[in-house]
């Protein structure tokens, strides 16, 4: 941490408060678990991939608020976000094309020989990854302010 007293210089808003840190440290595992739960069990309960992805993203935002967005930007490689997005959208696209090659239409998940609920759960996890990446990436790079010609911090 560069300046322990006040946020400035693209570090984004965060508070050096033990209350916030303890709360974030305690809550984050539960929030993450809840997000995964929402994504996986959205097929039979209220929830779904969009809700689960946003909750997972909110967990990362909570960590960033408590421990600083600046350290988080240095900790997470920017390429990881693009990779996660490609992984999620690629899984969704592969499932969709698989329906085509199994004799259905593109994105037709009813032609798979397994229970359709498992295919939907796979797609849901892919959607949740994409949504989580969008929320987390927006928060931690918006807090950096206007950039300086693309140089990495």
């Amino acid at each position: 941490m560069s300046d322990p007293t006040r946020p400035s210089g693209g570090e984004g808003p965060f508070v050096q408060s033990p209350v916030t840190r303890t709360a974030a440290r305690t809550l984050t595992p539960f929030v993450l678990a809840y997000g995964v739960y929402l994504s996986l069990f959205g097929t039979s309960l209220p929830g779904g991939a969009f809700q689960g992805g946003i909750v997972v993203g909110a967990a990362f935002v909570l960590v960033g608020l408590a421990f600083g967005f600046g350290p988080m930007r240095r900790w997470i490689h920017p390429g990881a976000f693009a990779a996660c997005f490609l992984l999620g959208i690629g899984t969704f696209g592969a499932v969709g094309m698989g329906g085509f090659f199994l004799g259905g239409a593109v994105l037709d998940v009813l032609v798979y020989p397994v229970d359709v609920e498992w295919i939907v759960k796979l797609v849901e996890v892919a959607i949740a990854v994409v949504i989580g990446v969008i929320v987390t990436g927006l928060a931690i790079w918006l807090s950096a302010g206007v950039g300086d010609g693309g140089e990495r911090e």
Partner: peptide, 10 residues
């Protein structure tokens, strides 16, 4: 992020 000049592609 592009508008904010934060489009970092390593």
């Amino acid at each position: 992020l592009v508008v904010l000049d934060r489009a970092v592609i390593p």
